[in-house]
């Protein structure tokens, strides 16, 4: 599903990743941990094609990220759902419109969109606030809209970059629970986080990064534990 083979990534200011090799299987849940600047976000950006590796090979859902053409990038992104700490919602569209937008860009049939959008909004517990604009929603609710948007195209991988970073404890618990449920449905999740409490609550695979290299991987040769630990 996701395979990093001896991947290096250099920025003008220095190396962000040094010889990272990683395999994430279908349906797996993996935490990426480490201090700021350890390389977590760089790994995620390589997964969703925002960056290209300087050296080595990154393969995601059959696409080689190093050789990704402009034509392939949208095709890759439609197989992924991406969630950020800052939500990245369009403030001048309602929750429903934000989610529908992700379907519209894929050219989905117009008559199939409303029902699907309501289904994912229900799944994330926001059906009642479908017509609210992001500024009218709490941080946790906004992140749920972002997750609904990420889910609406049935991704095989959910990429989450500090999805609870801006949320209070209660909202964090709710959003994390939602992500776990999504994983339980068969979607692989790669989640970068600073929140070690979250990591400790579960037995999911944890990959720790330091200065661009993998210093710990709890899941080497252990396979997936996605169905365990659900509350």
């Amino acid at each position: 599903m996701i395979r990093f083979a001896s991947v290096y990534k250099d920025y003008p200011k220095g190396a962000a990743l040094k010889n990272v090799s990683l395999h994430i299987a279908k349906g797996e849940f993996v935490f990426l941990t480490g201090h700021s600047g350890a390389g977590k976000s760089t790994i995620l950006k390589l997964v969703y094609g925002e960056l290209r590796p300087t050296a080595g090979d990154v393969r995601v859902s059959g696409f080689s990220i190093g050789d990704l053409s402009p034509h392939d990038l949208p095709r890759l992104r439609r197989r992924l759902g991406v969630v950020f700490q800052d939500f990245r919602l369009l403030d001048d569209r309602t929750a429903e419109e934000n989610v529908a937008f992700a379907m519209e860009v894929t050219g989905a049939r117009a008559d199939s969109i409303p029902a699907k959008v309501m289904r994912v909004l229900t799944q994330v517990g926001l059906a009642a606030k479908a017509s609210a604009y992001p500024p009218e929603l709490s941080g946790g609710e906004q992140q749920r809209v972002a997750i609904a948007r990420a889910l609406v195209n049935d991704p095989t991988i959910l990429v989450a970059d500090e999805p609870t970073g801006n949320l209070d404890e209660r909202a964090t618990r709710g959003v994390f629970q939602l992500i776990r449920e999504i994983n339980a449905g068969g979607t692989a999740v790669v989640m970068a986080t600073h929140d070690l409490d979250l990591v400790r609550q579960t037995t999911y695979r944890t990959v720790e990064l330091r200065e661009g290299g993998v210093v710990f991987d709890s899941g080497v040769d252990e396979g997936s534990d996605t169905t365990e630990g659900l509350e």
Partner: peptide, 16 residues
């Protein structure tokens, strides 16, 4: 620009 980056993120083609 922000809207464009979000469109790209969710898989919009350049033509779209």
């Amino acid at each position: 620009a922000r809207e464009i980056s979000i469109m790209r993120l969710v898989g919009a083609t350049n033509g779209f």
